[in-house]
Write a protein that binds this DNA or RNA. Structure first.
Lengths: 191, 191
DNA sequence: GCGACTGTACCGACCGGACGGTTCAGCCGC
DNA sequence: GCGGCTGAACCGTCCGGTCGGTACAGTCGC
């Protein structure tokens, strides 16, 4: 018998992507399988393969969503302040977005782990996007090194958490986040 | 026919661990399989399982070697300077060691990716070891935030490279490494 | 207004190969 | 003769991907 989920809160495609992210975080990128994703999302395997015809296309979609999501959130936060966003404003908001820990966003970076484990070639896309970002922050008044070091520290915190390597308490984390935002702001001033 | 590698430069155990590291870097942690490791190291599968009776034990050994290796290199570099190493000296040398790119060391961090992909529980060991390190640098004259931020930036660079996310040219990288070593040194001074 | 047909979204059994792991007889240099 | 392997067969499970089918909303000719 054919049983449709009672009012699925999200369209299946989104549920599948969420499930994939969460699976990576909770079981490790090596255990991201099509069966597991489908089950976790409450969709049949056939249903999954309807939306993502191969595992690669699932990985691509995960990365795509992650990248777009970050960009969109930065844009939203900048827009909230009104006027055309300055580069330093964008940098600062990006730092904030990446360090956000609201449950719906926490899992997003898992796409990076999944892609790097399964199909490292997909990372090229992310690398290009990162490169463009580096080119932008290099023009900040504080100079390339200053901004790049702040961005690296943000990466270190985020990636460390994704890999479950980060040993900081939530108190320490708050202090570090505060320090990072301040450091990002200072990249906007002449050194 | 039985073909022994002409004068195996290393004992099989080491060759296997090297092969595992390199496989992770070159094909992604998801493609780390026992057959592939054995083949890559020029050892039979039976031989691999003689040294590492399960995949988990291979992963544990990879992590163990990585952690010991870093510690040993820091100690060596400090010893070369003579006298009991100060905390700031250790921190500085650690930063240097982690950012080293000599071919034999480049692959070592791959253990982190492999463990996190296959058996995230193994990361607990690394996290503890990282925690001890954080507790030490927190007592530097520059204070907790300053040192932790430098360490995070080092992590960001290293992990970014492991994930093939890092977009920096070798020129940019050198500038960043120099800046990081300088920043580490400054953690030894009162702010 | 109704039957034929189309497109979208999804199901789940199944297949072939890969993977982790086992077993075991044997070889070879120290 | 024993520690350190080799080489190959084998097992059960898992995994990515295929395929034939189902439910159903919409639409178009008549």
């Amino acid at each position: 018998m054919y049983f449709r989920n009672p009012i699925p809160s999200q369209p299946a495609r989104e549920r599948l992507l969420d499930a994939a992210d969460r699976l990576v975080l909770e079981t490790g990128a090596g255990h991201l399988t099509l069966d597991a994703v489908a089950k976790f999302a409450g969709v049949s395997k056939g249903g999954l393969l309807y939306h993502f015809p191969s595992k690669d296309s699932l990985l691509e979609a995960m990365l795509e969503r992650y990248l777009n999501d970050v960009e969109a959130q930065v844009a939203t936060r900048c827009a909230r302040r009104g006027g055309a966003p300055t580069r330093i404003e964008q940098f600062r908001e990006r730092v904030r977005v990446l360090l956000e820990l609201r449950p719906e966003r926490r899992a997003a970076g898992a796409a990076l782990l999944a892609a790097s484990a399964d199909k490292p070639a997909l990372m090229a896309h992310c690398r290009r996007s990162y490169r463009e970002f580096v080119d932008e922050i290099a023009t900040l008044p504080g100079g390339f090194e200053r901004a790049a070091l702040v961005q690296l520290a943000v990466d270190g915190l985020v990636l460390g958490e994704l890999l479950q390597l980060s040993p900081y308490t939530s108190g320490e984390r708050s202090r570090l986040v505060k320090a990072l935002i301040k450091a990002a702001d200072q990249c906007g001033r002449m050194q």
